[in-house]
């Protein structure tokens, strides 16, 4: 059970890394526009077919 003293802090470090990545993404505006990128994908697909 003592392993928990090692594993838990490790898990928290992983969480922290993910959180930092998310904060970076949010602050750099990745979530500002959730509509246009979706449309962009649709159009480029149809363009390839054309």
């Amino acid at each position: 059970m003592n392993i928990i003293y090692v594993v838990l802090p490790l898990a928290l470090i992983v969480v922290l890394a993910a959180l930092l990545a998310y904060v970076w993404a949010a602050k750099s505006g990745q979530f500002d526009d959730l509509e246009t990128p979706a449309l962009r994908v649709v159009v480029e697909d149809s363009e390839r077919q054309a």
């Binding site: 969480v15 993910a18 998310y22 602050k27 500002d32």
Partner: peptide, 21 residues
């Protein structure tokens, strides 16, 4: 406005990560 919305998203992210743990 944009800054505010981003700040909200950051807050939600932090609060969510903490809540889960």
């Amino acid at each position: 406005r944009r800054k505010e919305e981003r700040a909200s998203l950051v807050r939600i992210g932090i609060a969510g990560a903490i809540a889960i743990n």
